[in-house]
Each structure stands twice: as structure tokens, then as C-alpha cells.
Amino acid sequence: MSLDQTDRRILTVLQKQGRISNAELAERVNLSQSACHRRVHRLEKDGYIKDYVALLDPRKLNVPTTVFVEITLSGQADEVLDAFEKAVSRIPDVLECHLMAGTADYILKVVAENTDDFARIHRQHLARLPGVAQMQSSFALRTVFKTTALPV
């Protein structure tokens, strides 16, 4: 299925206001409520809309520190990559894990209370990940820009 301009408008609105009512969404994208509901349902069914979530404030949850961790593995064999990916996916403090092309094999996005908490996460979890040859951590000083909205 290809997206037309109306689908793109629906997706743009929903990315920023996931709890908008169907009536308000229909009005914003200039559709009848029933046509809007059908389109949203189709976008969900076809996998363009994966899920609806609540974005939480890390400061309110006492995890304001973001750390980006570059991981280099000891090898590139499938079993090494699979073991690493399975283990890292079980660490609750890791929000994202990306397989990279470049100097690092993986980049992790980790949240922590502070540097002491990150030291605990490193000691209890990251240092025990299988296949890791080298690890380098960089602390974010401030988030300048952040969005979850994809360009549509």
C-alpha cells in the first residue's frame, strides 16, 4: 500500500498527538469521521502505525542521565552477535541498541540516575555482556533536540 497525502497528514498528527479523538483528527485532516476511522484502521493493519505509547519524563522518574555506549565485539560471527543482542535486550536501563557500520559494532543508549548509578549498570550488566572486546561511554550533557516523530 502506498501513502497518499491524507494518510501522511493522519500519521503526522498521530505522531505528535496519539490520544487525539477520531472526531478531532478527522477535522484536522479534513475527512469525515468514518473515513478517518477507516484510514487509521488500515494504517494500523498495514503496519504503518506499530503501537500507541506514553512518553515519560526521565527526570520525574529519576533517570535524567543519558549515556551513549560504543561497543566493539571480539568477533563478527553470527553466534557472537546473537549472544550479545540477546543479552543486551534484557538490560532494563538500555533504551536502544543499534548495530553499526563504522568504528563501533553497537551503540547503546542507556539511562541512569547519575554517574554512580551508571557505574552500577556498567559493573552489573554492561561489563558482563558476551563477546565485548572494548567499550567506550559518553555522557550527554544536555539534550538539545529530541523527537519520536518520523518524517512522513
Rank of each mutant, 00 (worst) to 15 (best):
M135E: 05
A127E: 09
L73M: 07
G47V: 11
L95C: 06
D116I: 01
A101G: 14
A119T: 08
Q33V: 13
R39N: 02
Q136A: 10
V94P: 00
T72A: 09
R90Y: 08
H37S: 15
F145Y: 15
A119D: 12
I71D: 05
H125W: 10
L56N: 11
A23L: 08
C97V: 13
L81Q: 10
K109N: 07
V88D: 01
D51K: 14
F139H: 09
T115R: 15
L43G: 12
E79W: 13
I20C: 08
A54H: 13
V29W: 03
S34H: 03
R90P: 03
T147S: 15
N62G: 03
V29F: 04
V111F: 11
E85H: 07
A149T: 10
L61S: 05
T72Y: 04
I121W: 04
Q33G: 12
V110L: 04
A35G: 12
V144F: 05
D117E: 10
L129M: 06
E85C: 12
L73Q: 09
H98L: 12
E79T: 14
V94F: 00
P64G: 06
R8L: 12
K45E: 13
K109T: 11
Q15L: 04
E27M: 08
V53K: 05
A87H: 04
P151M: 11
G102I: 06
H98T: 13
F118K: 03
A26M: 08
A127Y: 04
Q134L: 09
Q124R: 15
C97E: 09
D46Y: 02
N30Y: 11
L81S: 08
D82H: 05
R38A: 14
R39F: 01
V88H: 00
D57N: 15
K60W: 05
I91Y: 02
E44P: 02
E79G: 05
F68L: 12
V144L: 09
D82P: 00
L11G: 01
D51E: 15
D105P: 07
I20V: 13
T6H: 01
L129P: 03
